[in-house]
Each structure stands twice: as C-alpha cells, then as structure tokens.
C-alpha cells in the first residue's frame, strides 16, 4: 500500500485536486455548484489526511481524517444545502468582475505563491507541493470572498480558506493533537451555523441576500 502511494505520487494528485476545486469557484454561476465544489474539496482533504495516515501509521491521523470527513464532508454541506433551499435565493452569483478575468487572476495568484515559496522556507513533512497549494487555496478563497456579493458565497469562501489552512497545518506539522483538532472543528461548525442563521436574517431584513445592501454603518 505504502509503495503504491509513493509510486503513483497519490499525495500530489490529491493536493492538485484540492487546488483545482478552489480554482473552479471562479467559473461557477450558481450557489449549488459552490456547495458541491466545497463538498468535493473536503472529501479530498479527508482523503489526503487518510493517505498520510497510512504512510505514517499514526492513529491520531486516522481519527483526524474521520473527523474532517464527518464535519466538513457531510455535516456542513448538508447544512449549507438546507440554507440555500430555505433562502430561495435566485442562485445566480453576480460577481463584481467577469469570470474569465477572475480565473486569470486566480492563475496569477497560484503563480505568485509558487514563485515566492520556490526555495521552500519549510522542509515539509510529506510533499513538496502541499504548502504552496494550501497558501494558494487560502489566497484564492480570499479573492472569491472580496469579489462575490452573495452572503453565502462569503461563507463558502471562508470554508475554503479554512480547508486551505488545515492543509497548511498538515503539511507543516502532521496535524495537531486530536483534542485540539476536535475543538477547532467544533468552533468552525458553530461558526458556519451562526453565519447561516445570519445569512437568512439578512435575506429577511433586507429582502435580498446581496451584501450591497449592508452599507448603512460606516464612518
């Protein structure tokens, strides 16, 4: 199994999958596709952790993989889907900039990350590419967050950012102790639920899920 993983550089392929699902956000037009992309991204992340667990053979990594799958892969997507249905949004995401320009900028972001981390400040544990990819995912999701105006796209951008962060954490340190990981996932789950509630409230109070409406408080 170990030889097989190394021979086919499975870890690199999974990391690239994680990057690609983040890049696809630039092209999607509906919130449902965003949720699907997030689900795939989370499954890939859980898969990556499981593969590393096989390589290293540590129990706490298996647990981490299962926890990731349960929260990010199943619970959060189900919750998001419910919210989307409840808000009855028009499902159209109107970005502030066009999709092709947005894709090009994401490409540039990836290039910048690879150029600036070329020498590898870090000796990563299991892959040469995981850290670069995780930073690129974080930047792309930040970019998505500032260029889309639906409340839910912000939430999904935040979730992608956290996936990127967890990948970074794994590439640096093989993950945190299980108790701490549990605490982080719990915090995140609570955060998403509350953001979902607020998104519904925004829709109700402003009769729109566009964040353009939120401009009263300033100065």
């Amino acid at each position: 199994m170990k030889n097989w993983i190394e021979a086919f550089s499975v870890i690199d392929y999974i990391s690239i999958g994680i990057l690609l699902t983040a890049v696809t956000l630039n092209a999607f037009k509906s919130i449902e596709s965003y949720v699907k992309a997030y689900t795939i991204n989370s499954w890939l992340l859980a898969g990556l952790i499981a593969v590393v667990a096989v390589l290293v053979g540590e129990t706490h990594l298996y647990i981490a993989a299962l926890l990731t799958l349960a929260t990010k892969g199943i619970l959060i997507p189900l919750f998001l889907r419910r919210i989307v249905r409840r808000m009855r949004v028009t499902h159209e995401i109107q970005p502030y900039i066009g999709n092709s320009l947005s894709l090009a900028i994401s490409g540039i972001l990836v290039a910048v990350v690879y150029a600036s981390l070329k020498d590898g400040i870090f000796v990563t544990g299991f892959s040469r590419n995981a850290l670069q990819i995780s930073i690129a995912v974080i930047l792309i999701s930040l970019f998505i967050m500032i260029t889309r105006k639906k409340a839910l796209t912000l939430v999904i951008g935040l979730l992608f950012m956290e996936n990127g962060l967890f990948l970074a954490g794994f590439s640096l340190t093989f993950g945190m102790p299980t108790m701490i990981e549990l605490g982080m996932l719990f915090d995140m789950l609570m955060g998403v639920i509350i953001l979902g509630i607020f998104a519904v409230q925004i829709k109700r109070a402003f009769a729109s899920a566009d964040l353009d409406q939120l401009t009263v408080l300033k100065g």
């Binding site: 974080i138 409340a151 950012m161 956290e162 962060l165 607020f198 925004i202 109070a205 939120l214 408080l217």
Partner: peptide
C-alpha cells in the same frame, strides 16, 4: 444584523490567520 455579520466575517477571517 449588519453589524454582527461584519463582525463575525472579519474576525473569523482574521482569526484564521492567527491559527496559521
């Protein structure tokens, strides 16, 4: 609601950096 939304989004993004 507007204040709370801004608060939770900005602080969660910020605090994600602190986790990194």
């Amino acid at each position: 609601i507007e204040a709370a939304w801004k608060y939770i989004i900005l602080c969660t993004v910020g605090i994600t950096f602190a986790l990194l």
